[in-house]
Amino acid sequence: METSELLRHRIIKNLVAQHPEKAADAAINLWEQMATQIISIVGEGGFNALYARSVFLTQSTFYWLAVSSLSAQADYRFAELKMSFEGQTPVQVGEANSLLLINFTDILASLIGEQLTTSILHSAWGFDASNRAGKEFKNE
């Protein structure tokens, strides 16, 4: 379990690091892909609760992450998060988004288990076969 958790964290970090030049856009893209999968399982309410909790936990490290709510419209769900990211450097965005995703998936894993969480993430993000972390993920 410990190894698997570390692997998930590493996958997140690798994915976040893939597009440093468009860090904010890439970050929102990851969230939208993941949201589609998770909302289909736990609904909007469940997703919002998970998201709010992970934002709260992440704010203790990145105080500037001023996200209070999710937009009701799916197209603008992460508009506030994007605005928050756009005021930061790509490095800060990458670090904050990594932690936000890690916190989110940690909570999810604590609720539904590591295996199911990684399956959902796989469905959401697919992984580049050339990506080492992706390979490990797929061979899990």
């Binding site: 399982i41 736990v42 609904g43 469940g46 609760a49 909790r53 909570i107 609720l111």
Partner: peptide
């Protein structure tokens, strides 16, 4: 199922 899951997630987080 979604609604049930949502309630379970919210309750667990609370």
């Amino acid at each position: 199922l979604q609604q049930a899951n949502a309630h379970l997630v919210i309750a667990t987080i609370e």
